[in-house]
Design a protein around this nucleic acid. Structure first.
Lengths: 202, 202
DNA sequence: CCGCGCCGCTGACAAATGTCACGGTGGGCC
DNA sequence: GGCCCACCGTGACATTTGTCAGCGGCGCGG
């Protein structure tokens, strides 16, 4: 009746600390612990956890992608996303990736323990405040091309470089940037990138 | 002979997890735990910890500022900075703020435990690789004004807005931005902000 | 005292960026 | 088919930004 857990977080200290914390609960057993997204599936296959706790920011493969692969290939293992900041956009994408739960690191420990038990029991668990924020924010208003352009712009590239990488004319790129600026209500490329990023639209 | 600890981290889950982890060690006792930088000093006064573990990113007062106040007002309490990413610039500023130790969250748990014991014994503890990186990176080449301008630019402000907020002429702001771009080797305001931020220069 | 570096400012110029009006395409719908 | 709409793409144009040269002032160390 113990719940077998897999932990994935790129920060070793946090990973080990979570392991210590969760091991305090009688019904939890941490059976695997990895630091990279691309190690998740192999570890899950080998140790057969009931629930996988995945951070979003990880090297190799991000937590959302890892969740998608995991739910497809190891369907017995349920997924709880655990992330640093309550980014509204991530919640939506986590659900699309097949996650059954979404907990922010700001939450107290018993919320996490409770979420794990309920997910294990077949429920879907999301912080209600976060769910409301996501619904209020709605989906991304950006078109596919606009997103491509903003993602490239985020690295600090100039219009010319973006055009080069995306095989577009500079004028076209400027158009997309302009549209994105309008849609985000920003005054800059800089601000547009920041806003879109914060809302999980990238 | 037990070492009394104070924990400060804005993420409740991480804080509680670290508490669980450190409590596993026989010679550690967590006597206080706070989620805001501006609660650190009061908690230290009340509970008299031997060592304070401070995260850098915290609301209210950041970990560096909290460290400075703490070492000045509660000199018996030694400070270990604990931060998410090995930002080279932060190490330097942490040392200037009076911290005795600097541990990154990527490190395994025994490194942290070891660091706490050695700091308690009067040593200064820094990850050697991080120390080398800091020395190699050198200090910030930015002047105070250039930093102000970049910090304001980070929010997505236009040149005109930066000028307004800092009570400067647009031309002057442009000059500082230009200087910053040159010094960081960037091609943009965007990239300059990103680079300076990554190096802990802001 | 003198030189040096940082600050604040100006003005002018080149380059990058943002905005606009416009055309083409393809999918859904009457 | 004809209409509408959203998206993609382009070029022309105005604005913003980045670069450069140079001004005076202040504080600091030789």
């Amino acid at each position: 009746m113990t719940i077998r857990l897999l932990l994935a977080d790129d920060q070793a200290l946090v990973r080990e600390a979570l392991c210590a914390l969760l091991s305090l609960e009688d019904d939890f057993e941490v059976v695997a612990s990895v630091g990279r997204g691309d190690e998740v599936v192999a570890a899950a296959r080998e140790h057969r956890p009931d629930v996988a706790l995945l951070d979003i920011e990880m090297p190799g493969l991000d937590g959302l992608a890892a969740a998608a692969v995991l739910t497809a290939q190891v369907p017995d293992c349920r997924v709880v996303m655990l992330t640093t900041f309550g980014r509204a956009g991530y919640l939506r994408r986590a659900m699309e990736a097949g996650a059954a739960g979404f907990v922010v690191k700001d939450a107290p420990a018993d919320v996490l323990a409770d979420a794990i038990r309920r997910v294990r029991a077949g429920e879907r668990v999301v912080d209600p405040a976060l769910a409301v924020a996501t619904l209020a924010a709605g989906g991304s208003p950006l078109t596919a091309r606009e997103r491509d352009v903003l993602i490239t712009a985020r690295t600090g590239a100039t219009i010319a470089e973006i055009a080069g990488r995306l095989y577009l004319t500079e004028g076209t790129v400027r158009n997309y940037v302009s549209a994105a600026i309008t849609k985000t209500g920003a005054r800059n490329r800089i601000e547009a990138v920041r806003i879109a990023d914060e809302r999980g639209w990238l």
